[in-house]
Design a binder for these strands. Structure first.
Length: 323
DNA sequence: CGCATTTGACCAGCGC
DNA sequence: GCGCTGGTCAAATGCG
């Protein structure tokens, strides 16, 4: 799901100039994002326009003082409202984080039980070898976010006659739930990467067909993707990613909830403590919604970031006044 | 014309 | 060994 649909945070933060020290992907961690941004802004000494500069520039443009005051008051009140809202969301963020930690600590033993080494087709073994050659890290399957979800996955695995493949253990597998447009039968999940469809199959446990894709972003990329409408809720597409991209990613999300902040891609990679979280559909939607809000909240908790934000907003106002 | 998608055939693993 | 199933291949087709 494109979480940016929940909340438009596409402020132009004047980040167009490429800065390699700025983190392109932001992991969700207990200290995130405060440490990350604190260190960044400390290093960069972000230059913030002062209100004096702001006023001077406006005076140069022969704007009346009253107009300026009005505009500033309006921006200040908006800023105040935003700060209040974001502070509330930050509290939710802390609570949610605590909740996730609890779930993860409870789930690990169960997951280990359902993961068993199995036989594998020749081709898949080759794929696994290819993955290893590509220096892929060994990853485990999804770690669900609730016991209910865990049991569901467990039942799915048990009900399936064919055991899970070796590459299941060797290749990184992640599941993403994406809301589907009911009229759209193409089974496409826009994640920024380029995919080539190589097959479609109707599976036993689901009336809707499953589409098979390979990453065509790079010729040697071993990543595969399966997309199928959820059997329980056809309005949801279930995309299963297998493997790790051996090339640079695009500026869009791949299995992650990503928002665009100006020209900077901000990714909410739901990997925490080495476990990627597979979330129940409703949970996922709520989670991503909250995460996006929390991201914005966390950013504004940092005074230096808010200062830079204010500078960006004032810059925008200046630009608009010019045009 | 070149490329991506579609779709039926084929392959391999598993249970009986 | 046979049938079922998920996954893959590759020729046919469609589209820009």
């Amino acid at each position: 799901m494109d979480s940016s649909s929940f909340l438009d945070i596409s402020l132009n933060l004047n980040t167009n100039t490429l800065d390699p020290s700025f983190p392109a992907k932001l992991p969700v961690s207990p200290d995130f994002p405060h440490d990350l941004y604190r260190s960044y802004f400390q290093k960069k000494e972000v230059k913030v326009s002062t209100s004096a500069d702001f006023k001077r520039k406006w005076l140069v443009k022969d704007e009346s003082a009253s107009e300026l005051r009005e505009e500033l008051n309006r921006v200040n009140s908006e800023n105040k409202k935003l700060t209040e809202t974001l502070a509330t969301v930050y509290e939710n963020y802390c609570a949610l984080e605590h909740y996730l930690e609890n779930l993860q600590s409870r789930q690990s033993p169960d997951i280990d039980q359902i993961e068993q080494p199995t036989k594998k087709r020749k081709q898949d073994s080759d794929d696994a070898s290819l993955s290893l050659l590509n220096g892929l890290s060994s990853g485990k399957t999804d770690k669900s976010s609730s016991n209910e979800d865990l049991h569901q996955q467990k039942n799915q695995l048990l009900s399936c006659k064919r055991p899970v493949s070796d590459s299941f253990n060797k290749a990184k597998i992640s599941t993403v739930y994406v809301p589907a447009v009911s009229s759209d039968t193409s089974l496409t999940v826009k994640d920024g990467y380029q995919w080539r469809k190589y097959g479609q199959k109707v599976t036993r446990d689901n009336p809707s067909p499953r589409a098979y894709f390979r990453c065509s972003f790079a010729p040697s990329c071993p990543v595969k993707k399966k997309v199928q409408r959820s059997a329980e809720d056809p309005s949801v597409l279930v995309a299963t990613y297998e493997g790790t991209h051996n090339h640079l990613g695009p500026n869009a999300f791949e299995g992650d909830a990503t928002s665009q902040v100006g020209s900077r891609t901000v990714t909410l990679d739901m990997v925490h403590g080495g476990h990627r979280l597979a979330l129940e559909k409703n949970e996922t939607e709520t989670m991503q919604k909250v995460l996006v809000q929390q991201m914005a909240s966390s950013l504004t908790k940092d005074s230096k970031f808010t200062a830079a934000l204010a500078a960006a907003i004032s810059g925008r106002l200046m630009e608009q006044s010019r045009t």
